[in-house]
Amino acid sequence: MKTAIIKYNAGNIRSVQFALERLGVDGIVTDNPEEILSADRVIFPGVGEASTAMRYLQERNLDKLIAGLQQPVLGICLGMQLLCRHSEENDTPCIGVFDVEVKRFTSPVENLLKIPQIGWNNITGLHSVMFEHVPENSYMYFVHSYYAALGADTVAITNYVINYSAALQKDNFYAVQFHPEKSAEHGARIIENFLNL
């Protein structure tokens, strides 16, 4: 089985590669369209800023390529947000697999909200094959200032002042806001489930 990790100008790609390695899988980090198209699994990771990342993908036609992928695709963090319709982060139109708006966390008037959200938060309402053997309320590691709103494709929910999509799924597209590659054994299980689809 060939697993491609999409290489672009966003951080944290190495960690994903190492997480695959811990599962005995050799992930190929690539921006080569042939390599991506011929992979059995595609992981679209990323930490960074939405408009810069989208521009980079568009310049290489990777946005269209990603939208048309037929094999299982897993978006992580910024990767998940870029699979949505639009992000408030610098008013960026995104790839649009998920018909969901990405918004910025806003602090309620009465108390100070720390932004970005950094740390471990629980995921609930799990209903996806991604979460097989992952208990309800498992803790995952999140680092983000923007979130995908709830929608028809929501398959896991997290609360940080408001409820938002911790995970989305539609057809062959899977996406998580947290970092499974950094979320200890439950995170590793999600990656493994994705690879075993």
Binding site: R14, S15, F18, A19, E21, R22, Y141, V143, H179, E181, K182, S183, A184, E185, G187, A188
Partner: peptide, 8 residues
């Protein structure tokens, strides 16, 4: 470290 440790 990154290869072996599965937390941040």
């Amino acid at each position: 470290i990154a290869r072996h440790v599965n937390i941040p």
